[in-house]
């Protein structure tokens, strides 16, 4: 497998910008209000129908207002995406990953240590979605990252299992945390970026790029695999708070 940056540098963009569609909500929301044509679910969740997509909200953890939000986004007549939005959480890391300076070195590390992420980016290079992808959704004024699975069949009739939804949420959370803390979590990246001193300076300079970290304030928890999600969510909140401190 060619593990260079060229193999992953052009992720697919699902373009909704010509439509009056609101931007996607980031995966976990601490305050959530259903909109659109709302179908309440027996488990306390909801399916919200919009002309452009469906928004699925699940309150899986008892005694919490936080919900996991997923989307069913149409790709074509036969294919939809079940998508978890991670906002701009992947932006900074992707700039390194796809950049001319360090891209090939970091891409090789990603292929080695985070093969699922690498595979999602490779799968995202074409227009046909065959398996889980990490790609962009563009609305009128935003370009957001989503982790998405292909679904076959009409949008209104798609059936999504709890297992699939939960697995997608966990994966999206892990990618978010890995991307936001790639300097800590990706083995070998400090050496590729020139050692700890230079990396530290670069991260400080890049801190302004985390300007939308507030969007991640809702990152949190979910699921059938509650404990794992709880840990992921806890870490996510800590990371976001750390980023805010970096901005200060």
């Amino acid at each position: 497998m060619n593990a260079g940056r060229r193999a992953i540098e052009h992720p697919m963009v699902l373009d909704l910008s010509a439509l009056p569609a609101p931007p996607l909500k980031v995966l976990l929301q601490q305050t959530y209000r259903p909109a659109g044509i709302v179908q309440r679910q027996p488990d306390g969740g909801s399916v919200c129908h919009f002309p452009w997509y469906n928004e699925l909200a699940s309150r899986i953890v008892p005694d919490s207002d936080t919900v996991a939000v997923l989307y069913v986004l149409p790709v074509d007549d036969e294919t939809n995406l079940l998508a978890a939005c991670i906002g701009d959480a992947f932006d900074v890391f992707f700039r390194y990953l796809s950049g001319a300076d360090y891209g090939d070195g970091i891409a090789a590390l990603v292929a080695q240590h985070w093969p699922d992420v690498y595979r999602m980016l490779v799968e995202s290079q074409g227009t046909a979605v065959r398996s889980r992808v990490l790609c962009h959704v563009r609305t009128a004024s935003r370009l957001q990252w989503v982790v998405a699975d292909p679904l076959r069949g009409p949008r209104r009739n798609t059936e999504i299992s709890n297992e699939q939804a939960t697995d997608l949420v966990i994966t999206a959370l892990r990618i978010t945390l890995d991307a936001l803390q790639f300097h800590l979590r990706l083995p070998g990246v400090i050496q590729v970026l020139g050692g700890p001193d230079r990396l530290s300076r670069r991260l400080t300079a890049l801190s302004g790029l985390f300007g939308n970290a507030a969007d991640l304030g809702g990152l949190f928890q979910d699921g059938l695999q509650v404990e794992e999600l709880r840990e992921l969510a806890k870490t996510a909140v800590e990371v976001v708070e750390g980023l805010r401190a970096l901005e200060d």
Partner: peptide, 24 residues
């Protein structure tokens, strides 16, 4: 507005010519 929840981030043209806009 109630239906759409968060309004799409688009501008609406005012007056003739559409040179002046206002966020939806």
């Amino acid at each position: 507005r109630e239906l759409v929840g968060e309004p799409p981030e688009v501008d609406v043209g005012l007056g003739e010519g559409g040179t002046v806009t206002i966020p939806l």
